[in-house]
Computed example of a mutant assay.
Amino acid sequence: MKVPIFRASVPKSHPLLIHSLSSALPLTDEASKKKRLLSCCASSELNPVRPELTFCVGTHLIPHPNKVEKGGEDAFFVSSYNGGIIAVADGVSGWAEQDVDPSLFPKELMANVSCLLGDEEQGNNNPQILIGKAHAATSSTGSATVIVAMLERNGILKIANVGDCGLKVIREGKINFSTSPQEHYFDCPYQLSSESVSQTYLDAMVSSIELMEGDTIVTGSDGLFDNVFDHEIVSALAGYRDVAEAAKALANLASNHSLDSNFDSPYSMEARSRGFEAPLWKKILGMKLTGGKPDDITVIVGQVVSL
């Protein structure tokens, strides 16, 4: 369970951001549709010298087994704006102990990311600035980890992340790039919060990478990366051409691992490396700390294509 850094009062009710559980839809170039939750390919005129790039996107979300009724505490947003926008926010579940719904903050945060797109004069084409403005506009109580990735049509992918939502670039069957998680200590990541003293957009890890046509982008909450190894991600993607099917397959793989007490997951390996041990009865039997981490699982798979 992710823990919040600070305590606060119960939030006022707020309309939820609606996200699809699985999709791969055509994206349009119309600026008026930038606020819609869509996924896949934008259309534009070709550049005869250097093709402009965009994403084809597939998404899939599997809530924590105990949070299925409310759809979990992750939220995501994808858009065709410019070359394409991918964003994920993961609500910090520890707020439930304060009678706060952890899903409200990330959903409002993603809604604000959607609303702020397109105002380039205000720096909203910069993912770090966009995170800051979306955070400032979020009134719900709670906190969340977040990642925003913005593709320029020249192929430059700009990324800002706070906490342990992540992004990987797969090129020619290998992991070419990975973001790095930020944490205070094990299972307590950096997080944006409703509290006045917390991480801000200034604490975001900022990076950029030049993409090529044919690259695959995998973005997700830690429910994916805590339960699936890099080599499994690469192997799973190799079996699918359709991005929606690929996202669903990765999410299902993460879900299966998360519920397997015998699977030696990335999460359990990290826990052991930090000094955590198996319960005494397991130690007596010579068993080590293993198992996946049940969690909300959000997966977004983007294929880089030319316009």
Score class of each variant (00 low, 15 high):
Gly72Ala: 03
Gly163Lys: 04
Ser273Tyr: 07
Val305Met: 13
Thr54Leu: 01
Glu183Met: 11
Asp296Gln: 05
Glu172His: 14
Glu210Lys: 14
Lys2Leu: 09
Tyr190Ala: 01
Leu250Cys: 12
Thr59Ala: 13
Ile297Gln: 05
Met269Asp: 05
Asn66Arg: 15
Asp226Tyr: 12
Lys168Glu: 13
Phe177Ile: 05
Ile159Trp: 05
Pro63Gln: 12
Ala111Cys: 04
Glu213Cys: 11
Cys56Ala: 15
Ala236Lys: 11
Pro26Ser: 12
Arg153Lys: 14
Pro51Ala: 09
Lys283Asn: 02
Met1Ser: 15
Ser13Met: 10
Lys2Ile: 08
Lys33Ala: 10
Cys115Tyr: 10
Asp230Ala: 08
Phe186Val: 06
Ala75Asn: 06
Leu17Ala: 07
Leu167His: 12
Ile86Phe: 07
Glu210Pro: 03
Cys188Ala: 10
Ser208Thr: 14
Pro63Met: 10
Ser44Met: 12
His257Cys: 07
Tyr190Thr: 00
Asp29Ser: 13
Asp99Asn: 15
Thr141Leu: 05
Val146Arg: 01
Met212Lys: 14
Ile147Gln: 03
Asn161Cys: 13
Met269Lys: 15
Glu121Leu: 10
His184Ala: 00
Lys34Met: 11
Leu253Lys: 14
Ala89Phe: 09
Ala278Cys: 13
Gly220His: 09
Ala24Tyr: 00
Cys40Gln: 08
Leu38Ile: 12
Glu121Thr: 10
Gly72Trp: 01
Ser207His: 08
Gly58Glu: 04
Pro11Leu: 06
Met150Tyr: 10
Val68Pro: 04
Gly292Glu: 03
Asn252Gly: 02
Asn47Pro: 02
Gly94Cys: 10
Leu21Trp: 02
Ala111Lys: 11
Gly84Asp: 01
Leu224Asn: 08
Asp295Cys: 07
Glu172Tyr: 11
Ile284Ser: 07
His64Tyr: 09
Glu210Leu: 13
Ile62Gly: 03
Ile297Leu: 09
Ala244Thr: 01
Lys282Ser: 07
Met150Glu: 08
Arg241Asp: 15
Val146Leu: 09
Ile170Lys: 08
His257Met: 10
Pro26Asn: 03
Val148Ser: 04
Phe276Pro: 02
Val243Glu: 15
Leu280Cys: 07
Ala96Tyr: 06
Val113Gln: 08
Glu245Arg: 04
Leu192Ile: 11
Thr138His: 03
Pro266Tyr: 07
Ala42Asn: 13
Leu21Asn: 15
Val234His: 08
Ser306Asp: 12
Cys41Asp: 13
Gly163Leu: 06
Glu232Met: 13
Ala238Arg: 14
Val228Ala: 06
Ala246Asn: 10
Ser207Met: 14
Lys293Gly: 05
Val88Cys: 10
Leu253Glu: 00
Leu157Met: 14
Asp203Gln: 11
Ser235Glu: 15
Lys174Gln: 15
Pro102Ser: 05
Ala87Thr: 05
Ile131Thr: 07
Gly163Asp: 03
Glu45Pro: 04
Ile18Ser: 15
Tyr201Pro: 00
Lys107Trp: 01
Asp242Thr: 02
Val88Asn: 03
Gly118Met: 09
Ser198His: 15
Trp281Pro: 00
Ala254Tyr: 04
